[in-house]
């Protein structure tokens, strides 16, 4: 069981400012169902004074996600936009008397929602999905960019990939991006990179035909049924060496978690069951 503070429990059991808001001046949605938590933040802003006069939230997630959202709205009401911009995920966590380190990403989600809502208020470019966020995507499973990772590393003084995962989920999926995350940590702190341990494995030797058939079988039996359950679909287009080309169908087309699906549901299954060097690309 998580060691939550009394304040976390208080905000979870009696969340402040939960609900909808009509005609909000600023609005942001962050997170998604697949990731396990999501937050919608709505703000009323007095245009003359630049003071946030009201804040509402709706959250899908665990107790600390709900508590972080609740505390965020409390922090925001009565502040000017300039003051609000200075709020960090640390402020959210501190106001809750601290969060278990595995739950720090809940505070980061709150801070991201705030940032996105203010950007929307000022009419700044709102990215349609993760792929257009500032920076380059490092963690493909959760759609986290290098600049987001660098930010949590800097602001929270993180030193390990595990910490980064706890704070922003990056690296918590297939694990492929761990070396890149280590590079970012090193760049931020200027330290020495520690080489990750490589698992020792023996590969089965397959002919190309065997490999293609196994990929086809894995997609048909392992991957497609799951995607169909979520209203989507997938077809194998071609296999070139270790590159597997697929087309997404149904609701997967244009879905904001399509990249997540591709990397997690498709690529990791193929790596597990066919060949660990496989990478998947979408044919549009």
């Amino acid at each position: 069981m998580w060691d939550y503070t009394k304040k976390v429990y208080d905000h979870f059991l009696n969340p402040r400012n939960v609900g909808d808001m009509e005609n909000p001046d600023a609005y942001a949605e962050v997170g998604n169902m697949a990731c396990g938590d999501a937050l919608t933040l709505m703000l009323k802003i007095d245009k003359k004074t630049n003071i946030i006069t009201d804040a509402k939230f709706k959250t899908f997630g665990c107790a600390s996600a709900i508590a972080s959202s609740s505390v965020l709205t409390e922090l925001l009401i009565g502040k000017t936009i300039e003051q609000a911009r200075k709020i960090t995920n640390q402020d959210i966590a501190e106001r809750l008397g601290g969060l278990p380190k595995e739950k720090m990403h809940c505070s980061v989600m709150g801070q991201e929602a705030l940032e996105k809502a203010l950007a929307q208020y000022f009419g700044e470019e709102i990215p349609e999905d993760h792929t257009e966020l500032e920076g380059v995507i490092v963690c493909k499973c959760f759609g986290v960019t290098d600049s987001q990772i660098a930010k949590v590393v800097r602001e929270n003084n993180l030193h390990t990939v595990g910490d980064v995962t706890n704070y922003c989920k990056a690296g918590g999926g297939c694990g492929q991006c761990h070396p890149e995350i280590e590079d970012i940590i090193r760049q931020v702190h200027g330290g020495v990179r520690v080489e990750p341990e490589k698992p020792v494995g023996q590969k089965k030797v397959m002919t190309n035909i065997e490999k293609i058939l196994l990929i086809q079988k894995t997609i048909e039996q392992e991957i497609r049924p799951q995607m169909e359950a979520d209203g989507g679909g997938i077809d194998l287009i071609d296999v070139v060496g270790n590159k597997v080309l697929v087309a997404l169908r149904g609701t997967c087309v244009g879905c904001r978690t399509a990249q997540f699906t591709l990397k997690h549901a498709v690529e990791s299954k193929l790596r597990e069951l066919v060949d660990e060097d496989i990478f998947v690309e979408e044919v549009k």
């Binding site: 169902m33 697949a34 996600a65 739950k103 359950a229």
Partner: peptide, 20 residues
């Protein structure tokens, strides 16, 4: 599995194709 390090809510439910 509301722990950030884990992506699968439950390996059993996901193997059964229970949607997220």
């Amino acid at each position: 599995a509301c722990t950030s390090g884990s992506i699968e809510p439950s390996h059993v439910l996901r193997a059964m194709g229970v949607p997220f």
